[in-house]
Design a protein around this nucleic acid. Structure first.
Length: 291
DNA sequence: AACACGGGGTG
DNA sequence: CACCCAGTGTT
């Protein structure tokens, strides 16, 4: 049986001895650095973010710095981290923080949630990991650990609002202890209770795990949607166009873009959607990054 | 609730 | 090669 007390008791020493040394875990990191890290970590692996976050914060250490940067440089620096709309939203967030909060990252979840590109996960991650407030922080790792340890299921069901309440019920009363439980649940999901081949032998909550108790049965319930194939997709086409735009200091002729992605219909959709997203600007017969 | 949205790591 | 990744916004 797993309680908030037993969970905290098992996770705290495990986290202390197993936590990875990642840039966003430096106690000296400020709220802005934490926020930028969390945005980069949205759907991008920690190992890749660990490299880029350092360079990013050296270049734009404060919201004001990023707010004042040329957008084409922001998109170039974002590079191949993926989902470049995040870079646009991050700069918009920097502007919003300057305009609405005097350049200071807000502390409360509601204010954080109001920032572009900041959702349920990111808002709480900043409020908890930087400011030390008490909130459930639910990412894909936490959903999987809870699915197994509490519900005895091999994988997480599709994300839902109820996940927040389920995790909230497992948090210790003390906000500092609650923050440790949250970060440790995420680390456990990343290192031990993994999606593919969980290392149950190494797990600090093995004795409390409902999935182990049930004999580790295969998952029967409704699965979260699988991502569509990337190769040959519209997403890949967009990515290829963006890569060409990042590589050039000048507007890129559409005829050159055609060499990057020969399929006419798909290329047209990619260019159209990138322009619509504000990631690219048409200039005559060329395409360029926004200024 | 279901999709679109990058690109790379991993078994 | 299939699956997965510290999610968010839109429909």
């Amino acid at each position: 049986m797993l309680t908030s007390e037993s969970l905290h008791a098992a996770l705290t020493p495990w986290y202390r001895s197993h936590a990875r040394d990642l840039p966003w875990r430096q106690p000296s990191l400020d709220a802005w650095g934490t926020l930028v890290s969390e945005v980069m970590l949205q759907q991008t692996q920690a190992s890749r973010v660990a490299v880029e976050i350092v360079r990013w914060l050296e270049r734009w250490p404060t919201p004001r710095d990023l707010a004042d940067a040329p957008t084409h440089e922001v998109l170039r620096q974002w590079g191949s981290l993926g989902y470049p709309r995040r870079a646009l939203r991050l700069q918009e967030t920097a502007v919003a923080i300057v305009e609405r909060h005097g350049g200071i990252v807000p502390r409360h979840v509601d204010s954080l949630l109001a920032l572009p590109g900041v959702g349920e996960y990111t808002a709480r991650a900043v409020a908890v990991f930087h400011f030390g407030d008490r909130h459930p922080v639910v990412d894909t790792n936490v959903r999987r650990v809870i699915a197994r340890a509490v519900r005895g299921q091999g994988e997480a069901a599709p994300a839902a609002k109820r996940d927040l309440h389920e995790v909230e019920a497992l948090l210790p009363r003390d906000s500092h202890d609650a923050a440790i439980v949250s970060i440790a649940l995420m680390e456990l999901g990343a290192l031990v209770c993994t999606a593919r081949a969980p290392q149950c032998d190494e797990c600090p909550i093995r004795s409390q795990c409902a999935w182990i108790a049930a004999g580790s049965p295969p998952y029967e319930g409704r699965r979260a949607a699988r991502q569509a194939k990337f190769a040959g997709s519209d997403r890949q086409a967009r990515g290829r166009v963006m890569k060409a735009l990042r590589a050039s200091d000048m507007p890129v002729p559409l005829s050159d873009i055609a060499l990057e992605w020969p399929d006419d219909d798909q290329r047209a959709r990619a260019v159209e959607s990138l322009v619509g997203d504000g990631l690219a600007v048409r200039e005559g017969d060329s395409l360029r990054l926004p200024h």
